[in-house]
Computed example of a mutant assay.
Amino acid sequence: MDGLNSKQQISSYIIHSQEEEIKRIALELHEGVGQNLYSILTGLQFIESGSIEPDTKKFVRDMAQLIEKTIQEIRLLSVELHPPTLTTLGLLPAMKSYIKLYTSTFGILIDLEVTGEEKWISEKNSITVFRVCQEALTNIAKYADTSNVKIRFFWLEKELKITIEDFGKGFQPDAYEHLNPSSGLAAMQERMLLTGGQCVISSKIGEGTSIEISLPL
């Protein structure tokens, strides 16, 4: 038992350290790299507004548009790495924000249904649940071959339950994890176990995949 607790403590420490680094990188992308690119964009727009040759003007405009597109991509990446709403507003608003980003990126529609009254969750547990949901949705985009996903949040008195159903092509969980050790399924389950919760994954070929997440409150 002591060995198991020690292993869980080490895993928890590693995950926490990773999340802190991810948060730092997301902040640097948004406030560092993003702001620098915005300054370059402003300079290019100023040059474009001046009286320069048409060919040069077109070149500067094209460069400004490329910089603007890059700024948008960096902002999206920063939000995906660590959504600011997760810290300021909580799990559910962060999920809603990520769902919009997810749909615009992959074209997969997500039907989000919420039952019960949202309750307070520690930042650590909020991040864990968010990451598990994020990993589930990433796997759906990569492998499920579906255009619709159903996510249900059930806020109970002492537990949060979340179900994610993709209605896609499905797979054999045991065989898939064996052939794809980096698929993230085991990591999803381990993350939830560290919170005292669970992540149960079930799937049938041709019928889709269902993920059930539970977190004690």
Rank of each mutant, 00 (worst) to 15 (best):
K142E: 11
A64T: 12
I108R: 05
Y98H: 11
I121M: 15
L91W: 03
L160M: 08
I110K: 01
I71H: 08
L81D: 13
Q72R: 14
I140K: 05
E80P: 08
K158I: 00
E123A: 10
K69M: 09
W155G: 02
L66P: 06
L109P: 01
L92G: 00
V132K: 03
Y143G: 04
K150M: 01
E165H: 07
N139T: 12
E159S: 08
L112K: 03
W120K: 14
G90K: 07
V60H: 00
L92W: 00
P84S: 05
P93N: 06
P84G: 02
R131H: 08
M95H: 06
M63P: 02
L77M: 13
K100V: 02
Q72N: 15
A94F: 10
V114G: 06
I108E: 14
D62R: 13
S104Q: 12
I121Y: 13
T128P: 07
I71W: 03
T105D: 15
R75A: 14
R152A: 09
Y102A: 05
I71Q: 06
M63H: 11
S97W: 04
M95F: 13
F130M: 09
S126L: 12
E159F: 00
C133T: 11
L156G: 09
A94K: 05
N139R: 13
N125T: 15
I162K: 03
A64N: 06
A144M: 14
K69I: 15
A94H: 04
L81V: 05
